[in-house]
Amino acid sequence: MNWLNDNVNLLSLIGAAAIILITAFVAGKYIKQMKTDKSTGELAEENWDGIGEYKNPLPIGWAVSFLGLIIWAIWYFLAGYPLNGYSQIGEYNEEVAAYNTKFESKWANPDEDTLMGMGEGVFLVQCAPCHGITGDGINGKATDLTSWGPESAIVNTIAIGAKGSGYPLGEMPAGLLDPESAKAVAAYMVEKISKAGPSKNPDLVSTGEALWATCSACHGEDGKGMAGSSPDISNYGKPEFIVNVLNRGKKGMIGSMPSFNDGRLTDIQKFAVGKYVNSLSQ
């Protein structure tokens, strides 16, 4: 690569040479003055162990050099590199964006088998290191995804609480309801709120509706989380519920699961992961 073919690099080299020459000239001038000149002028009122400081004006050469470097730095970052020039990072980001666009177009309407295959592939790379290949949580080290989705998991969550999602209304404490009341709420939730039912305990749905106020205080009457104040459980048991968790991230026992809303996965990939995770509990 010939650096002189790049105007910004050429200007940078010229500027660097000018700085070196000016520095050498100014340094030589003041070194010479130190040998011949005697200090004169008005001293400042402060002194340190009898050593005073002259009220000399700022050297013009130093001031011009200082201001020139500031102007050069502003130009360099705003009009030169890195904002207005080629970079490998920029090229990589453009290639990734183009590939993601192509990927989303190709898989805009995948069939069920394609979704499951895509979800399994992403899961094994992104999720299995913590949750295990089978999604069982590796003996409690991470969330057991094989128990996500069923009605019984709601009962378990009410019993042990829910932590680590960082919602404004805080964490869900354990033991909000007794076991029988929890079963009733779970029945109402899967049949009427998330509509992922039918419930395995249809006779408890009406009882669960009467107890729903315990949950609606945070999740809202419709279970949608009151505009992000708490988790949206209206899509519990569906891929969209998993997508919400992926987008938000979660703090677990062995560390924090990052948010996958940073572009590393496309929307269709996250939906595919949701489909695959749901299949683990069936």
Rank of each mutant, 00 (worst) to 15 (best):
E112T: 09
M118H: 00
I254H: 07
V155I: 14
N244W: 03
A16F: 07
T146R: 09
I20Q: 04
V26A: 05
G255R: 01
D144S: 12
M1P: 08
L10M: 14
I233A: 02
M257N: 13
G225Q: 00
L265M: 14
D267A: 14
I133P: 02
A24R: 02
V205A: 05
S12H: 02
K195C: 12
F25L: 14
S279Q: 12
N156L: 09
L10T: 08
A79K: 14
P239R: 03
F123N: 03
V122R: 02
P110S: 06
E104Y: 13
H219L: 02
I74W: 10
E240C: 07
D113W: 02
P198Q: 05
I70M: 12
A24D: 00
A210W: 05
D113Q: 15
L211Y: 04
I138V: 15
S281M: 01
T23W: 11
A227F: 11
N201K: 03
H131Y: 05
I154P: 08
I71M: 15
G61C: 05
S87M: 08
T157R: 15
D49M: 15
T36F: 03
G149S: 09
K102D: 13
D262V: 05
H219K: 03
G61M: 01
F103A: 02
L69S: 13
A210F: 05
K195L: 15
I133F: 06
I268E: 11
V26T: 10
Q269Y: 01
E112C: 00
A272T: 03
G28P: 10
W75F: 11
A73F: 07
E180D: 12
K32M: 02
G85H: 08
I51T: 11
K275E: 14
L169S: 08
P202C: 08
E104C: 13
K224H: 01
N235G: 06
D232Q: 13
L78T: 15
T36R: 12
K183I: 03
P258K: 05
G255E: 12
V190A: 00
E240P: 06
A98G: 06
Y276G: 08
V8R: 03
Y76H: 07
T134P: 02
L176S: 00
V96G: 08
S65D: 04
